[in-house]
């Protein structure tokens, strides 16, 4: 059973097609990246998944069926529009929101206290929320997302406003949650975070799915035209199937001609008896793939 199954959802606001026949599935126990440039339709998709908006067409299954009030207690959501009640103390605010997630009063108090200690907010618990820094509010928001031990966590830009120390802490936390079997959907356009954390991803642009699958598969799919080679000696000036050779630190980047595979180059070099220290297919970074996809507008069927 998938944690989330999105099937051909579309949503239109006035003249704007915000989401256009988007489909993807999120498997239990994975960190799934939902990527796309600003205004691509990520937030609308999430709101449809969470039953905040109804789709014009298509359907969504979450935790094995339609959204219900009971399921809401098993979902943690950190929205892009960060919001906390500003005029009450942090402790009251966290307890209230934790109780709305179905925790009993004593349970909520205990978990909130434990989380505040972990997030270094315990000393600030009697302060009004509006007196806290942006980073602290962000951490408070993360507490609300995770306090009720949800099965499914959906987080929109989890690292904005966090310093490197807290960023690392949140990353560790997300990995920890995944290792406990929780499903995490991370919505972001910080590609290096996705590369570091996500197992699979979907990339949406102009409301359409552009890329979908395993991170490693996608990178491989966009690779193959460059090879990094570190020979012990010099490389020959001409290698069949290589259109250009660039120096790169202690090695070379070989730009392959069309129809040439890295395997053919490796075979050729071995046959020529050139001793190699390192031979690597240069995988593009997600950043590069992102820019390439978003600027070329190719759609995945």
């Amino acid at each position: 059973m998938s944690s989330i199954k999105v099937n051909q959802i579309s949503k239109r606001f006035g003249n704007q097609q915000a989401v256009d026949r988007v489909s993807f599935e999120v498997e239990p126990g994975e960190i799934f990246g939902l990527l796309g440039p600003n205004g691509a339709g990520k937030t609308t998709s999430i709101r449809i998944i969470l039953d905040i908006f109804k789709p014009d067409s298509g359907e969504v299954e979450i935790l094995g069926g339609k959204m219900t009030d009971e399921k809401k207690n098993q979902i943690g959501y950190l929205p892009e529009e960060r919001g906390l009640y500003q005029d009450i103390t942090l402790e009251v605010c966290l307890n209230y929101l934790a109780r709305l997630k179905g925790l009993k009063p004593a349970e909520a108090a205990a978990r909130v206290e434990q989380m505040m200690k972990r997030f270094d907010l315990y000393d600030h618990r009697k302060k009004k929320v509006k007196e806290l820094s942006k980073g602290m509010q962000q951490k408070a928001q993360l507490i609300i997302t995770l306090v009720h031990d949800p099965q499914l966590v959906i987080i929109d830009e989890p690292f904005s406003a966090l310093d490197p120390v807290n960023t690392q802490m949140v990353k560790d936390l997300l990995r920890e949650e995944r290792d406990k079997g929780k499903t995490i959907v991370m919505c972001t356009h910080q590609m290096h975070q996705v590369e570091e954390l996500c197992d699979r991803l979907v990339l949406i642009n102009h409301g359409k799915v552009m890329l979908y699958g395993k991170l490693s598969d996608i990178r491989r799919q966009y690779s193959g035209q460059e090879v990094i080679v570190h020979p012990l000696n010099e490389l020959p000036a001409q290698i069949p199937g290589v259109s250009r050779i660039d120096r790169d630190n202690s090695g070379y980047i070989l730009h392959l001609a069309d129809q040439t595979t890295p395997q053919a180059i490796l075979k050729n070099l071995v046959e020529q008896g050139i001793p190699l220290e390192r031979f690597e297919v240069a995988l593009p970074t997600l950043d590069e793939i992102f820019i390439q996809v978003v600027t070329s507008r190719g759609e995945v069927s």
Binding site: R47, L50, I52, Y77, R82, G83, Y85, D87, L97, L100
Partner: peptide, 17 residues
């Protein structure tokens, strides 16, 4: 209005009806 100004609605709507 506070609910709107504080932007708490999304968290609320994913907690109860």
């Amino acid at each position: 209005v506070e609910e709107k100004e504080n932007r708490t609605m999304e968290v609320i709507l994913t907690s109860l009806s």
